[in-house]
């Protein structure tokens, strides 16, 4: 049988090395986790700061874009309504995208 035999490939893959935790790894991490739990009430702080930063950027961006579009669309009938909806949708999309990129909601 050659190395191209599917069963031999499976057997070789099953022999890929596996990591073994060093001695004391679990106890050390448990202690770190307990320390972290003691500071648990402050864990929301970085997320709030990052979220605040994102919100500020989005607001300024939306305001500047709004000013620009308002100047361009002012002669168009119904332009204000289109502008308002576009800005609202754009801001929501941008905030969602930035929050996702920043992994605010993931472990």
């Amino acid at each position: 049988m050659s190395t191209q035999d599917p069963r031999r490939i499976d057997a070789a893959l099953a022999r890929l090395p596996e990591w073994q935790p060093p001695p004391g790894f679990a106890m050390r991490l448990a202690a770190l986790a307990s320390e972290g739990a003691a500071n648990h009430r402050y864990l929301w702080l970085p997320a709030v700061l990052r979220g605040g930063g994102i919100a500020a950027c989005v607001s300024v961006g939306a305001w500047l874009t709004g000013e620009l579009l308002a100047a361009l669309l002012s002669p168009v009938p119904g332009g204000d309504e289109v502008l308002a909806w576009t800005l609202a949708a754009g801001s929501l999309f941008l905030a969602w995208h930035l929050a996702r990129r920043q992994r605010l909601f993931h472990a």
Binding site: R7, A11, A14
Partner: peptide
Amino acid sequence: QLADPLALAISDEEAARVH
């Protein structure tokens, strides 16, 4: 699913080639 690894004995050299 991958085959039972115990069913086949393969050499270290062969495993290294696959890896």
